[in-house]
């Protein structure tokens, strides 16, 4: 199992590569860290949740890549948030769909906001 502190660090990048391959990797791990700081869950709870998800992905024979690692980070984060704040967890699926619609409704050149999820598609 990962050490609690190690589970909070970015995965060691390959030599010559950037710390995070894509921004959502950084954001997912950044949120996980912030929720420990705010006391929603402990470092140990986080390490256990992440380790469990990493195992689950490994058992499913997902490739041992950086992408799989961060998929596990995101899954662990969703699971822990769902346990600690059921109201948040229960709203996730709806909110994902709202953001998806907001992006589809917003033409390039306009900032994407959640308001666009329900409004009519904006004029170009």
């Amino acid at each position: 199992m990962s050490e609690p502190e190690a589970a909070l660090l970015p995965r060691e990048p390959k030599p010559g590569s950037t710390v995070f391959a894509v921004p959502w990797h950084a954001e997912a791990l950044g949120i996980a860290n912030a929720l420990i700081q705010s006391g929603m869950y402990s470092q140990v709870e986080w390490a256990n949740a992440l380790a469990a998800e990493i195992r689950r992905f490994a058992v499913a024979a997902e490739p041992d890549t950086e992408e799989t690692y961060y998929q596990a980070v995101l899954a662990a984060l969703e699971r822990l948030v769902g346990e600690k704040s059921p109201e948040t967890g229960g709203s996730l699926v709806t909110r994902v769909e709202a953001w998806r619609r907001a992006y589809l409704n917003t033409p390039h050149g306009q900032p994407v906001t959640l308001a666009a999820a329900t409004g009519p598609a904006a004029d170009h």
Partner: peptide
């Protein structure tokens, strides 16, 4: 420009947590 599925999931999580006062985006 539609973000990938995990990007949307992170965005959903972050926006809900911030709205509920459970997350400070500055810490992230």
């Amino acid at each position: 420009h539609l973000p990938s599925a995990p990007e949307l999931r992170v965005k959903a999580l972050e926006s809900l947590l911030v709205e509920k006062g459970l997350l400070d985006p500055n810490t992230v």
